[in-house]
Computed example of a mutant assay.
Amino acid sequence: MAELGRLLKESWSLVDDQQEKMAAYFYARLFTLDPRLRDLFPVQMDVQRARLLGAIVTAVQTLEDPNRFADYLSELGRDHRKFSVVPDHYETVGRSLIEALRTYGADEWTLEYDQAWRDAYDVIARTMIAAATADQGPAYWYANVLSHERRGLDTAVFTCRPVEPLPYRAGQYVSVECGYQPRAWRAYSMANAPRDDLTMEFHVKALGAGWVSGALVRRLRPGDLIRLAAPMGSMVLDRGSPRDIVCVAGGTGLAPLKAIIDDLATTGRTRRVHLFFGARTRDDLYDLPALTELAERHPWLTVVPTVSHDAGYEGETGLVTEALTRYGPWNDHDFYVCGSPAMVAATRRTLTQLQVPAMRVRHDVFGQDY
């Protein structure tokens, strides 16, 4: 397995700087081999290309950790049921992927690399197919939008209720599709622990030309019907740990951390929680009133809002990682981190400098149209 991992990483380095071109080639080849597959994908393909390569890189990175590798691919297999994927599609995808890698690996691509990717993809496909086949739940859930509130120009908080129960754990996320962008699915975290009334809260920020996030912020209305895919993600509460908790949120990365806090509140907590909520300006602290109310109800919760680009702000200023270092010590806490890729990476570096063991840090990343 170690040798396979070495070959995959070594060969990926040949194409890493050509991901966009390789993805375009992959999809062109895929739709040539089976034109019917085009109907499974959204009209706008730019984000979809990045998601494909992201999934490949993640799978390769987890290969040396068998449990994580199997868990990730099983979730991916169940999630792909929403696309009406059948086992025969995996063969076509595999052929297209190998051809794309071979084409952009060019003269440096070897038969050894080719076989390594064939072997790896065979394991990936079999694991995903097995998980999808064994899943007894629906491929997706319909949900009614109950409320929708704009929080500034580019952020919204909405609640919905699935028509049938959708089981998940606080800290997980689901893919969402709305009628304003058919067949375009994007992942968003639930901002609450599971409730008896089945309602789910989502926080969405419209990022640039994000097709789905823009529709969910600017066009979604109460009464609309959306679709939710199977829950994914492993950033869930470690119930066996006795340690106090630190949550570090950037922007709408707050959502899963708020769900974890909600989980602690509803199941009987015995641990103190510090929540560091970072944003650019005070106006970007879109959920601060709700967090303040939450802290007033629960004395074990401390909320530390932080802004990085607001000179007149009277609270904590600077990057959220800088605010984090002004508190502590943190070497005997569990950490949950969610935000943009840059924010998560910076937080992990800071925690390393603060000598927090990596095994105590769970994180999730947002930033592709979330």
Rank of each mutant, 00 (worst) to 15 (best):
residue 166 L to T: 02
residue 121 Y to D: 02
residue 81 R to K: 15
residue 265 A to I: 08
residue 318 G to L: 00
residue 58 T to H: 15
residue 56 I to F: 04
residue 149 E to T: 14
residue 291 L to A: 01
residue 269 R to T: 13
residue 355 Q to E: 13
residue 134 A to R: 12
residue 335 F to T: 00
residue 204 V to Q: 09
residue 95 R to S: 04
residue 93 V to D: 08
residue 346 A to R: 08
residue 102 R to D: 15
residue 337 V to D: 00
residue 133 T to H: 14
residue 107 D to G: 10
residue 329 P to R: 11
residue 20 E to K: 15
residue 329 P to E: 05
residue 228 L to V: 11
residue 234 S to W: 10
residue 220 L to P: 06
residue 345 A to D: 05
residue 207 L to I: 13
residue 130 A to F: 07
residue 16 D to S: 15
residue 87 P to V: 05
residue 314 E to L: 12
residue 205 K to D: 08
residue 9 K to A: 10
residue 124 I to S: 00
residue 337 V to N: 03
residue 327 Y to G: 07
residue 209 A to R: 11
residue 323 A to Q: 07
residue 33 L to H: 06
residue 125 A to L: 10
residue 214 G to N: 14
residue 39 D to H: 15
residue 34 D to H: 00
residue 48 Q to G: 01
residue 125 A to V: 05
residue 141 W to Q: 10
residue 9 K to I: 04
residue 279 A to K: 02
residue 310 D to T: 01
residue 25 Y to R: 03
residue 32 T to I: 02
residue 48 Q to D: 05
residue 370 Y to G: 08
residue 275 L to W: 03
residue 209 A to S: 13
residue 206 A to D: 12
residue 125 A to E: 00
residue 339 G to M: 09
residue 16 D to W: 13
residue 23 A to L: 08
residue 257 L to E: 01
residue 78 R to I: 00
residue 222 P to C: 06
residue 151 R to N: 12
residue 354 L to I: 04
residue 108 E to V: 02
residue 266 T to R: 09
residue 350 T to P: 07
residue 163 V to G: 01
residue 294 L to V: 14
residue 47 V to T: 10
residue 363 H to G: 04
residue 19 Q to H: 13
residue 214 G to Y: 03
residue 154 D to K: 07
residue 272 R to M: 04
residue 288 L to Y: 10
residue 71 D to C: 07
residue 97 L to D: 03
residue 53 L to W: 10
residue 89 H to N: 15
residue 317 T to R: 15
residue 119 D to R: 11
residue 319 L to R: 13
residue 147 S to G: 14
residue 57 V to R: 13
residue 230 A to W: 00
residue 336 Y to V: 02
residue 207 L to A: 07
residue 212 V to W: 00
residue 357 P to Q: 03
residue 41 F to Q: 02
residue 96 S to A: 14
residue 31 F to D: 04
residue 162 P to V: 01
residue 154 D to V: 04
residue 326 R to Q: 09
residue 284 D to G: 11
residue 103 T to L: 01
residue 350 T to D: 08
residue 353 Q to R: 10
residue 171 G to V: 01
residue 265 A to H: 06
residue 333 H to T: 02
residue 180 Y to N: 04
residue 342 A to H: 09
residue 287 D to M: 09
residue 140 Y to C: 05
residue 49 R to H: 10
residue 312 G to W: 08
residue 268 G to C: 00
residue 61 Q to Y: 09
residue 185 W to E: 04
residue 364 D to Y: 03
residue 26 F to C: 04
residue 138 P to V: 03
residue 54 G to H: 04
residue 21 K to D: 11
residue 71 D to I: 14
